[in-house]
């Protein structure tokens, strides 16, 4: 098991996808989504916004689970909607369940991270505080889990997707 894999893919200037699950499936599925969003952009001369992109990805997974060879992929989709000036976060699982959430976590450290965010998140949280909360979650996961992962993070805003230093 690789502990320092980058599991966040930038799909378009306003959209990033974090993924976990069966190793081969994840990369294949995210490649597929990335190319399809690019095709949409070329055909229609406009990027797919986060809300319709989430609907598209959810539908692909819902069709996949009902096929002969389903993808085992869990996703967190983050995006900034430039038309409505809103940030979006979606959690999508391998069964095709989509949830619109203010904060989300997936993987081995899910309960540690979610408990931390349950305690410190509040509706008017600022961007700086949210970045700090993310660092708090990472620290908590490193403290409480036996397996030592390395983490990377991105921040998505009107200017695009940028790496966020965690330390």
């Amino acid at each position: 098991m690789k502990s320092d894999e980058n599991k966040i893919r930038t799909l378009s200037p306003g959209l990033a996808l974090a993924f976990g699950g069966e190793p081969g499936d994840t990369n294949n599925f995210v490649d597929y989504v990335e190319r399809n969003l690019r095709l949409y952009q070329i055909r229609n001369n406009t990027e797919l916004l986060p809300a319709p992109a989430s609907a598209f990805i959810r539908k692909e997974l819902a069709n996949s689970i009902r096929s002969r060879s389903p993808y085992a992929v869990n996703l967190l989709l983050g995006g900034y909607d430039k038309v409505h000036s809103e940030a979006h976060l979606y959690s999508i699982d391998l069964y095709g369940t989509k949830a619109i959430l203010p904060y989300a976590a997936q993987g081995l450290g899910i309960y540690v991270a979610l408990s931390t965010m349950d305690k410190y998140w509040y509706p008017e949280i600022t961007r700086e505080e949210a970045e700090e909360l993310l660092r708090k979650c990472v620290a908590e996961v490193k403290l409480r889990l036996a397996y030592q992962f390395t983490f990377n993070a991105v921040v998505i805003d009107k200017d695009g997707v940028k790496d966020l230093p965690l330390l």
Partner: peptide, 15 residues
């Protein structure tokens, strides 16, 4: 609407 959960943009339908 089924695929993207939004109303189709006008130009896309015309196209």
């Amino acid at each position: 609407l089924l695929t993207y959960d939004e109303e189709i943009p006008v130009e896309m339908l015309a196209k």
